[in-house]
Design a protein around this nucleic acid. Structure first.
Lengths: 208, 208
DNA sequence: CCAAAAGTGTTCTCCATACACCCATGC
DNA sequence: GCATGGGTGTATGGAGAACACTTTTGG
C-alpha cells in the first residue's frame, strides 16, 4: 500500500515523501507506504500509515488505483494499492517524520526522482485530484477550517493549473451551497477584511 | 482478481457469472476470477481470465477498484483487484464455459445472490459504466462492428436506465465525431433501412 | 393498408465565460 | 497616499433539453 499525501502551504501544493533508509533505492525518495496487515482493511492500512507518518487522523482519503507491474519492485513481486490523501498543513503542525527516516514536503512539480513506480502513482494522483475538482467541490481538507474565498480560489488554481475568474468562481462555489459564512473575518493583511467561510459537513450528501 | 464481464443481447445488458463447484459458496454464482500469477501484470491476469472464460481476446478492459475487506473470503485473507470488461455477444458466439464449471449470462438486475462481496463489485461496475457513458463515448465494444444509431441509443438507454431523445442523441453522437458512416444499411426489419455506422478507432486519442 | 422504425430542425433555457470598478485597510 | 486585495453585476455564446411529423418498408 502506498499513499500520496497532498498538503498546501504558502509555497503551493506539496506532497509528502520519505527518504528510504534501506535497499532497494536506498537514499531515494519515495511515497510513504507499507504492508497491509492481515486483519485490517485496505482503507484501514492507508489510514494507519498516514497517521504514523503525519500524526493526522481525520483526513480525506480515497483509493486511487492498484499498480501491478511485474518488476515494479526489484526484490520480488509486489502489488501496491495506492491511496491519496488531503491534509491540512496550516493548522496542525505536521511532524513529517515519526520514525528515523527522513521525511519532507516537496512541491508536486519539484519532486526528486522517485523510487519504484512512484512517479507514475504521483502523476495519477494529481490527475485524479484535478478530475474531481472539476465537477465536485473537494479540497477544503487542504485548507484551514475557516478560510477565505480567495484562499479557496488560490487552491483551485494551483491544482487545475490555470487562472480562474474571481466573480465566476465565487458565484459557482456559493451557489453549490457547500460552504457557509462564519462570523469572522481574516485581517492583518493589507487591504479590506475578508469574510471567512467554513465547509458545511452536512453538504456532502447533497453533492454525491 | 475478479472480473465483471458485460455483454449485450436482445434481452438487455448481461453479466457473465460462474457457478462455483467448490466450497466456500459451493453452488452459488460468482464473478469469474482467479489468482494473479507471479510473472504477469494485473491487466494481463484479467485479460487471461477473460479469455479463458469467454474465448475473447480484444475487448475493452479496465481496472475498477480493489476490494480488501478482511472477511470477504471466509477461508483466509484475500484482496481482490476487480476489473470490468465489455464484450460483443452478437458476433462471436461466446462459449460461456471453458472448463467444467457452469457459466451463464444474467440480466444485470436479475442476477442471483452472489458469493463473497461480488454483489458490491457488480454494483460498482454498473455505476462506473454509467458514469463513463455520461461524459465520454464508450460502449461500442458491446455492439457489432457495424451498428445503427438506434442500436447505440438503445444501449445507452439500457445502461443509463432512462429514455433519451432521439434527435438530441443523434446530434450529440455525430458531433462527437467518434463514429462514421459505412456504406451499408441494416434491412430486414419492418420500416425504412437504417444506416450502419462504425466506431472510428483513431478517435480514441481525440476523446481522451 | 397498417404497424414499426428511420430520419430530420428549431426554440428555449440555463450554465459557463468574459469583463471593470470601487472600497477598505496596512504600511 | 498608495499598494494590496475584497467584493460586486451584466451581457453574450454555447450546450443540452423539449418537442412532432414525414417517409420507408415488411407483413
Amino acid at each position: 500500500m502506498d499513499c500520496v499525501v497532498f498538503g498546501l502551504d504558502d509555497e503551493g501544493l506539496k506532497v509528502l515523501l520519505i527518504q528510504r533508509g534501506l535497499a532497494p533505492f536506498e537514499g531515494k525518495w519515495a511515497l510513504p507506504g507499507g504492508f497491509v496487515r492481515v486483519n485490517e482493511t485496505l482503507d484501514e492500512a492507508a489510514r494507519r500509515e498516514l497517521e504514523e507518518e503525519t500524526g493526522l487522523r481525520k483526513v480525506f482519503l480515497e483509493q486511487l488505483y492498484t499498480f501491478g507491474a511485474v518488476d515494479r519492485d526489484p526484490r520480488e513481486r509486489v502489488v501496491s494499492v495506492a491511496y491519496y490523501a488531503l491534509v491540512n498543513l496550516s493548522e496542525h503542525h505536521v511532524h513529517a517524520a515519526t520514525d528515523a527516516r527522513d521525511a519532507a514536503w516537496f512541491g508536486v512539480h519539484d519532486a526528486p526522482t522517485l523510487a519504484f513506480d512512484h512517479a507514475d502513482i504521483l502523476q495519477m494522483a494529481l490527475e485524479r485530484l484535478r478530475g474531481k475538482l472539476r465537477y465536485q467541490p473537494i479540497g477544503f481538507e487542504l485548507l484551514p477550517k475557516k478560510f477565505t474565498l480567495s484562499q479557496l480560489q488560490h487552491l483551485y488554481e494551483l491544482v487545475l493549473e490555470r487562472e480562474l475568474d474571481k466573480r465566476n468562481f465565487r458565484r459557482r462555489i456559493l451557489e453549490a451551497d457547500v460552504i457557509e459564512e462564519t462570523e469572522n473575518y481574516r485581517t492583518g493583511q493589507v487591504g479590506p477584511r475578508a469574510m471567512l467561510y467554513r465547509y458545511r459537513p452536512d453538504a456532502v450528501a447533497e453533492v454525491t
